[in-house]
Write a protein that binds this DNA or RNA. Structure first.
Lengths: 198, 198
DNA sequence: TTAATAAGTAAACAATCGTTTACTTATTTT
DNA sequence: AAAATAAGTAAACGATTGTTTACTTATTAA
């Protein structure tokens, strides 16, 4: 049989992300995607059941999967708390800064009911994303370093700001001076650490 | 001449928000909206130029306008720092908790290029949203209480977590025990305050 | 070398999209 | 009471939507 053309499969995912990032999820259509990827609409349906299936797989496997891997690079749950936090923040900053299309879809993951549901389902059925971070926080609670709060609360307190700082990095891209620098990220991370430490 | 039916105008806005909240911005269509509001599609075009105009006005005037008003209730830039922060956090929590459709569109404001651009344009041309918060932070920088960082950085550090906590409140709505309570909000706010104070 | 078969294409499907045309209704001003 | 006029409706416009049908191409296993 004729083998799959993996280059076309990758083109679909790459260009879908590009359209979402530049024009918005609400302006992505299968026909626009096919045309931009220089393939027939039918080809997308060989690789994905339908549009929702494409979006969910793009979000869960392609975007969140790679994002998780990038964030956890050189991170170990046994690291000292402040070191671990700085590693996670810098990894987030570096990865997202260089992957705007991925960041765009991640943002839609918090708005779109479809993607939000897909994320929750995945977390329940196949184990949570960012499991090492769970362990890291749990360990530091048990060590008495940080207060014992639900994981979702920890997550909001410790990682929401870095996500918004990345958004601000992109918002400032076309301006003469970039205010969101690595130094600002580290300063911000230290402020967050100071708040959570008992 | 025949006067505008204000009830219909409000129905359009209300039902548009409802559809966006339940089905997502990507599933809002003018015909669906008209049918749900029990009016002719043409009626929407009497009040709004086109779909983009409707979305932008819904976002800027209806949602962000009311949101700003609600957050600043009983807030004064001259309040003590911790008091002001707690006021802003609790106002945010109370308002958004009771206005899920508004919260949904606010979330889309950070993903959708159209809405994001509209927000930035508005902030530049007609003065920033949440101006009293600007003043509040500036005052506390000058008083030497908090570090002198760009406003966007302050904003990410001090208010990103409360937005995500509200999202988690809604995510937990159907579960037996609500973990995002007013007490958790206040505890979280105190942690953020502790981090930023010099 | 050929039979088998999945990958891929071009073109089209009904349904729906955003928007408009042609018309009626309701209200105000004269 | 009638002229003027914006608000609103029903129906339809061409374009585009997600998806499929009918067909061709490229590859592998026999």
């Amino acid at each position: 049989m004729r083998p799959k053309n993996l280059a076309k499969e990758e083109a679909i995912r790459l260009i879908a992300l590009q359209i979402i990032s530049e024009e918005g999820l609400e302006n992505l259509s299968m026909q626009k995607l096919a045309k931009a990827a220089n393939i027939s609409p039918r080809t997308i349906y060989i690789k994905y059941e339908n549009k929702e299936d494409l979006l969910i797989k793009l979000f869960i496997d392609e975007v969140l999967g790679k994002y998780e891997k990038a964030i956890l690079e050189n991170f170990d749950p046994k690291m000292a708390f402040a070191d671990g936090m700085k590693r996670l923040w810098l990894n987030t900053f570096h990865y997202l800064r260089n992957n705007k299309p991925a960041f765009s879809l991640i943002r839609y993951g918090k708005s779109s009911p479809l993607l939000n549901k897909a994320f929750q389902d995945k977390n329940i059925q196949q184990g949570a994303f960012f499991a090492p971070i769970h362990t890291f926080l749990k360990t530091n609670v048990q060590a008495g370093l940080i207060p014992d709060l639900p994981h979702d609360v920890h997550s909001a307190l410790l990682f929401s700001p870095i996500q918004d700082l990345v958004a601000e990095y992109f918002d400032h891209l076309d301006r003469p001076v970039q205010i969101i620098t690595e130094k600002v990220i580290l300063t911000s991370c230290e402020i967050v650490i100071k708040g959570i430490l008992k």
